[in-house]
């Protein structure tokens, strides 16, 4: 008897096509949003002309606004949203914990401490603004935090999901307390800069930054997606996974390294953007079921779309001022999470 295509596979294909269309429309719309009025077709034509397709109808000033300011910001939102969502989904799989997000093992606290050191101690404490080397210290802090968590939670080969999560809580608390102390003992202008960084922003996005993080994001995302089948196996627990031939520790290490590295790369550039890694995998799960083979590829398009929309709100909701991106993602994410919880609680018939 030939194997019939299961309903879940057909549904996944339909959702995938729809999500790509929505992502492209959202990105196109984000190119148009802004103080300077540019039509949608002209903005898209301008972007295509830079890719060698057709000619732009915009003036030099409009071209600079679309191609040098808005397009890298939209591209950055797509890349960061995709990475955070894939990392969040991977963490939820590897820890078998629906509340896991990419910051579970201390990345947020480590990156925050690194950025705080850059802004308050190495930079000019009297000046406002965020030094250019902040991303490197944030990245270093994030990776150091994960390494510390792994060395504590995985010592003696006992890196079970529970011990790693507990180690992550301890490391996060420790690093956050140091970061808070440094922040409190700094000038008010430095404190403001630290807060701005902690809340995340895409306002300074440039093509150079986008190209800098893309290799990390592509490699880490591909590793996570390729691990989808292994994460499905992990859903039956460590002991059964080992009996099924899965090298549990190796898979856990690989997925955590890929997720953490990708997350650290994007966080170091845009700051701490919360809720994407927690919410998006749950939304995807509601549409295509619980298999990580289906969830993780769709996290790319869903996460990218979510952050493009959130950033559009962040820069257009108030006239003349931007809302910090982390505030917008939390404002959208918290109610969405409550809705998901209510849907998940409904008894199946």
């Amino acid at each position: 008897m030939p194997h019939a295509v299961p309903p879940s596979a057909r549904r996944t294909a339909i959702v995938a096509v729809m999500s790509v269309i929505v992502m492209i429309v959202a990105a196109g719309a984000a190119l148009v949003i802004g103080v300077s009025s540019v039509s949608g077709t002209a903005a898209i034509g301008d972007v295509l002309s830079h890719l060698g397709i057709g000619h732009s109808s915009l003036s030099d000033v409009q071209d600079a606004i679309v191609w040098d300011l808005r397009a890298p910001r939209v591209a950055m939102a797509l890349v960061v949203g995709a990475m955070l969502a894939v990392a969040g989904g991977s963490y939820q799989g590897v820890f078998r914990n629906p509340l896991a997000d990419p910051y579970l093992l201390g990345i947020a606290a480590g990156a925050g401490l690194g950025a705080t050191i850059a802004i308050t101690r190495i930079g000019n404490p009297a000046s406002s603004g965020i030094p250019t080397y902040t991303p490197w210290l944030a990245f270093g802090g994030a990776m150091a935090a994960v390494a510390l968590t792994w060395s504590i939670g995985g010592r003696g080969g006992r890196n079970t999901a529970a011990t790693l999560v507990l180690a992550g809580v301890a490391v996060s608390s420790l690093l956050t307390s140091v970061q808070t102390y440094l922040q409190q003992s700094s000038s008010s202008s430095s404190i403001e800069s630290v807060y701005l960084w902690l809340l995340g922003s895409l306002s300074g996005a440039s093509w150079a930054q986008v190209w800098l993080i893309i290799p990390y994001v592509v490699i880490c995302t591909l590793v996570c997606i390729a691990s989808g089948r292994a994460l499905d196996v992990l859903s039956v627990g460590d002991m059964e996974s080992r009996a099924l031939g899965l090298p549990v520790s190796r898979v856990r290490f690989l997925v955590i390294v890929a997720s953490s590295f990708g997350t650290a790369a994007v966080v170091s550039v845009v700051g701490l953007v919360g809720f994407v890694g927690l919410i998006v995998p749950h939304v995807v799960r509601l549409t295509v079921g619980t298999s990580y083979r289906r969830i993780l590829p769709l996290c790319v398009t869903f996460g990218a779309t979510f952050l493009v929309l959130a950033d559009s709100v962040a820069r257009s909701a108030l006239s003349g001022a931007e809302i910090p991106l982390g505030v917008v993602t939390a404002l959208i994410g918290a109610p969405v999470f409550v809705i998901i919880l209510n849907i998940s609680r409904r008894p199946t018939t």
Partner: peptide
């Protein structure tokens, strides 16, 4: 045995091919 919530029977059984 740990029975993962939401996984269908076919997906569960093919885990044996790991």
């Amino acid at each position: 045995p740990v029975i993962p919530a939401g996984m269908d029977v076919w997906d569960y059984v093919i885990l044996g091919r790991t």
